[in-house]
């Protein structure tokens, strides 16, 4: 019997198979990025008598069922101008407090004041542990202590003598109604984000000459290494905190 030659496998259709797979993956994958505004929902607590907030500290932005806007009691026709108004809200009293206007006041914290606060909370935690206070109580003191420590680090980074801060109650309040379109709600969020970006970016450029977005990207990319950038971000966030309150619409 003659020896049969070993036949080679025809690989010509291999490319077809690979193409088929390629096209499958091309079709089933999405390239779009997911972008969103991240907000935290306040913890559910029952407050008997809430602390009254001064009118000057509230920047209320309302949208009704017909998608019409109202900012601080005045009808707003151009939603793109909201960010300008938010900037005004933050900047009016930034240099000097003028009690005659209706915008939030700034307070000045010095290093010795911050140290005093730190000592106070240290003492309070100690006392609370001694008398066996509730867990929430101790947690609250610890979070306050952390906040003041952050402030101390920020003031050190800023140099100089004092830290000028906007009133802790100052906030942007978004009030929509049941049928307000989501696009309007998103537009208000966008405008608030734009204003905060501008505030922080201007400050960042003035202090270090680095755009805010560059700092943010760096921290997001090298979470454990970019300590310098993280401290700078913390400072900017203390100077211009994101305080947005979303009011649940009435039924």
């Amino acid at each position: 019997m003659a020896k049969r030659e070993l036949q080679e496998i025809n690989a010509g259709s291999m490319a077809d198979i690979a193409f088929l797979l390629l096209i499958f993956f091309l079709v089933t994958t999405t390239m779009d990025k997911d972008t969103a505004f991240i907000r935290s929902i306040p913890k559910k607590v029952i407050v008997k008598d809430p602390v009254p907030v001064e009118e000057r500290n509230i920047l209320s932005i309302k949208a009704n069922n017909q998608n019409q806007l109202m900012v601080r009691g005045e009808i707003f026709s151009d939603p793109n101008k909201i960010s300008e108004f938010i900037l005004k809200f933050y900047r009016t009293n930034e240099k000097d407090n003028d009690p005659t206007n209706n915008f939030p006041m700034y307070s000045t914290a010095t290093m010795s004041m911050i140290d005093a606060q730190l000592d106070k909370f240290d003492q309070q935690i100690e006392d609370a542990e001694k008398i066996g206070a509730s867990k929430e109580m101790i947690e609250f003191f610890e979070s306050s202590l952390k906040e003041w420590e952050k402030k101390k680090a920020s003031l050190r980074l800023l140099g100089g003598e004092e830290l000028r801060e906007i009133n802790g109650q100052a906030h942007v309040r978004i009030e929509v109604q049941q049928a307000t379109e989501y696009s309007i709600f998103a537009k208000i969020q966008t405008e608030a984000e734009e204003a905060l970006y501008e505030l922080r970016n201007d400050r960042s450029m003035q202090l270090w000459g680095i755009p805010y977005s560059v700092l943010k990207r760096k921290v997001a990319q090298e979470k454990d290494k970019a300590f310098d950038e993280k401290a700078k971000l913390d400072l900017l966030e203390i100077l211009y905190p994101t305080k947005i309150v979303e009011v649940t619409p009435k039924k």
Binding site: I38, R39, Q177, Y182, K251
Partner: peptide, 21 residues
């Protein structure tokens, strides 16, 4: 927006406190 706030309320109820729009 009312529906979004309904969802938000449900999340608050179970203590899932980070939402993204």
């Amino acid at each position: 927006s009312g529906l979004i706030f309904d969802i938000r309320k449900e999340l608050q109820e179970i203590n899932a406190l980070t939402i993204a729009y």
